[in-house]
Every structure is written in structure tokens, then in C-alpha cells.
Simulated scan of single mutants.
Amino acid sequence: MAFGHDTEDSLLSAAALVNTLTPEDSLENVGDLDEFVRSWAYTGAHTHTRAELDEVRALRPRFLEAWSMSRDDLVTFVNDVLLQNEALPQLVRHDGWDYHLHATPSDAPLASRIAVESVMAFIDVIRADELERLKMCAGDCGGVLVDLSKNRSRRYCDRGCGNRANVAAYRARQAAAAETD
């Protein structure tokens, strides 16, 4: 199942936002938020204030829970977020992108835009019945990932957990081979 570019981007940015929470907080100050906004190319209003940072940080635990919700619970969560943020879907074209869906105006608070864009992507996941693509990292970081692979085999987040697991397995094999020699 291939999702549209905007859906994939929103899912990946939601996962990246959740992953700033664990294992240590990497969204501690306004500069961190500025970097997050820049790296995920969020457009529209951005006040660069502590209050805005706190609003965005408050999204993380709620979205972490979303990764392990049942389909029906995720539907309830999505509907609640859309209602709370007075989402009104509309087609827009900007910054070189062809028409795509936005559900908040560009001057809406950053946290609202992030929340709504994320749940709009969850809608596509729900409608395609692809919740198994939202996974917890198999490493010990407590992070999440979006498995966009064809065979749904991705197990680790983007923070090096897969590399650490591979190195640990290699060292264990080397140690076992040394013991048998």
C-alpha cells in the first residue's frame, strides 16, 4: 500500500515528533522546535515562543498512545482532534507542491496544524486498514516508526536502534565462536 506523499510525510513527521520524547527529550527549547519545523517543512505561522513549544510538546504523549490504539480507538482519537481544532479540509497549492489537503488555515497555531495534519494522515491509514504500519521500535528506545516497506518488515526507528541491535548480535556471535574455539 503506497500512501500519498503528504500522508507519508505527515505520518513520518508525527513519528519524529513522538520520538523527540524518548529516550531523552530532544525538544527542550524554542531552537529545537525551530529545527523540527524547518526539517519537516511546516509552513504557516510560527511564533517562536515558549508557549508554542509547550503546546507542541503536549502533543507527544497523545500521539505516542495513538501508535498502540485499536482501529476504533484511533477513529475516536482522530475525530476528537479534528473537532478540537475546528478542522475544515480544503485543497491548497503552495511552495511548489500541487494541490493537496490542508484542514487548518496557515495562521492557525503550529500545534493545531501539526495535530490536524497528523490525524489527517491517520485517516488514510484507518481507511486503508493499514494500522500494522504504525509500530513501536523493536529496540529499547521506546520510540515509534512508520513502516512504509513493501513487506512490512521494518522493526527499528531512525535513531540507530537497528545498528545497535546488529552490532550486539555480531558481538554475541563473535563471543560464541570464540568460546567454541
Rank of each mutant, 00 (worst) to 15 (best):
V167K: 10
S26T: 15
L134N: 01
S39A: 05
R159F: 15
A66C: 03
T20S: 11
S70K: 04
E179W: 12
A41Q: 06
D25W: 02
T49Y: 06
R155M: 13
E52I: 00
A45T: 05
C161N: 03
D95T: 07
Y42V: 02
R152K: 09
D147V: 01
P23F: 07
R62G: 08
K135F: 06
H94T: 12
N79C: 06
L148A: 09
A175D: 12
Y99K: 02
W97N: 09
Q174P: 01
M136Y: 08
Q174S: 13
E35W: 10
G162F: 05
T43N: 06
A2H: 10
R57A: 11
R113I: 01
A175Q: 14
A178E: 15
G143P: 00
L21Q: 07
R57S: 07
D181H: 14
L59K: 03
C137Y: 01
G143D: 00
D34Q: 13
S68W: 06
R50V: 04
E86L: 15
A115N: 02
C161Y: 02
W97E: 14
S153A: 14
P109Y: 04
H94W: 11
L64W: 07
L74E: 07
D34S: 11
A138N: 04
C161M: 05
A176R: 13
V144E: 06
R164E: 15
L33F: 03
M1N: 10
E24T: 15
D25I: 01
I114W: 06
G143I: 00
S70W: 08
A128S: 14
K135D: 08
E117M: 10
V92Y: 09
N151Y: 04
A121R: 00
L64H: 11
M69E: 10
D140S: 14
